[in-house]
Amino acid sequence: MKKFGNFNIAALVIGFSFLYIPIILLILFSFNESRLVTVWGGFSTKWYGELMHNQGIKDAAWVTIKVAFISSTVATLLGTIAGIVMTRFGNFRGRTLFSGMIYAPMVMPEVIIGLSTLLMFVSLAIDRGVLTVTLAHITFSMCYVAVIIQSRMSSYDDSITEAALDLGCTPFRTFMLITFPIILPAIVSGWLLAFTLSLDDLVIASFTSGPGSTTLPIKIYSMVRLGVTPEINAVSTILVGLVTVGVVTASLIGKRQKQQLAQS
């Protein structure tokens, strides 16, 4: 297709307005002078200033970043191994159960995952806190990483690794010299996805966190229940901005790498 059809233009305009107008309004009203959400009282950044004095939000943000950083890093490691196992290890015993445990957490309702993980921690007498939230986040985000790695692994030609092994390269060296550079972009996007999944999670964190490990979504949720305020808009805008910058940068890096590969 060289041109847009009329139906296609209409669908895209309506579809993207639906997807973006709520977020744009949310951002716009974070710069509202007035406390009332529907009355525009002039441009102001005072709500961002007020955030800086909100110790509860600052503490929650710090906990969230810590949890997201550790959980996404461990999840990337485990998920990469899982993705390689799924594509390159043939039919080992218990493979169906393994792939079931990879795919199920991605669709399983969060309340079920949250409840079951918490009940396990309680029955093992592990106190709720940063550790339990981190473990729960690693578990569900490693599945997303595994699927990203799996689709990258299955889309490149395995004969180059076979050639290396035939020529006497050890499996570890083959992995470091050939497989790893090929799947590196997938590892990076897997890490980013795991990081944002952990950053966004409310339900599982609510079940598995304890006093002192309140994450930012839990804090925002408790504020939202009390009503719409410009402060929530401000903290949301910061989060949306960070995620947008991250995703756009990652996709630009990916594009550039593709171009370099095409040139070489």
Partner: peptide, 13 residues
């Protein structure tokens, strides 16, 4: 990629 909670919150207003 944007927070689920934030996107739902946006609709309240």
């Amino acid at each position: 990629w944007t927070s689920f909670l934030i996107r739902v919150y946006a609709w309240i207003g």
